[in-house]
Amino acid sequence: MTSLSERSLNFQGNALALYHRLLARTVRWQIEGRANISKAQASGRPLLWLFWHEQLSAFVTYTVRFVGGDKFTIVTLGGDPRGNILGNFAASLGATPYGVDMQGNPMEAGRKVLRIIQAMKDGKDSFLAPDGPDGPAFEPKAGASFLARKAEAAVIPVGGFTKAGYALRRWDRYLVPLPFAKLRIVFGDPIFVNKRDKDEAVTEKIVGALTAVYRQARGR
Rank of each mutant, 00 (worst) to 15 (best):
G68S: 10
L4M: 12
A144Q: 04
M102D: 09
V158C: 14
Y166A: 07
E152Y: 09
L183Q: 09
S43K: 02
V67C: 00
Y174W: 11
I191W: 09
L23E: 12
R173K: 15
Y174Q: 09
L48M: 11
V100Y: 00
E200M: 03
S43H: 04
M102P: 00
M1I: 14
I156D: 12
A109E: 08
F59E: 11
G165A: 07
F146I: 10
A144K: 04
D172T: 12
Y98E: 11
L147I: 14
V155H: 08
P97Q: 09
P190Q: 06
Q12P: 01
K163M: 05
A154G: 10
L50V: 11
F51K: 00
F187D: 07
R196A: 13
Q12H: 06
R173G: 14
L128Q: 06
S145M: 02
K121N: 09
Q216R: 12
D80T: 07
I85W: 04
L9I: 04
P157V: 11
F89W: 12
D172K: 05
D122E: 15
Q216S: 15
G69V: 03
K141S: 13
D134G: 04
G68A: 03
K182T: 15
A15I: 08
G87Y: 00
P106A: 05
R82D: 15
G33C: 10
A58N: 13
R45K: 14
L93Q: 04
L50D: 05
D189H: 11
F11P: 14
V64W: 10
G165Q: 05
R7Y: 10
G87N: 12
Q41H: 05
M107W: 00
G123V: 00
P179K: 03
R65Q: 15
L147S: 02
S145Y: 06
G33K: 07
T2N: 11
G83A: 07
V193H: 02
V193Y: 08
N10S: 14
V113H: 00
G219W: 01
M120Y: 05
A35L: 00
R218V: 13
T73M: 05
Q12G: 11
L77P: 02
L175N: 02
R184F: 10
W49P: 03
P179S: 10
W49R: 07
V202A: 01
D80W: 13
R184W: 09
L50G: 06
F146W: 01
G99F: 01
Q12R: 14
M102T: 14
T26C: 01
R34P: 00
F66Q: 08
T162C: 11
G87M: 07
S5A: 13
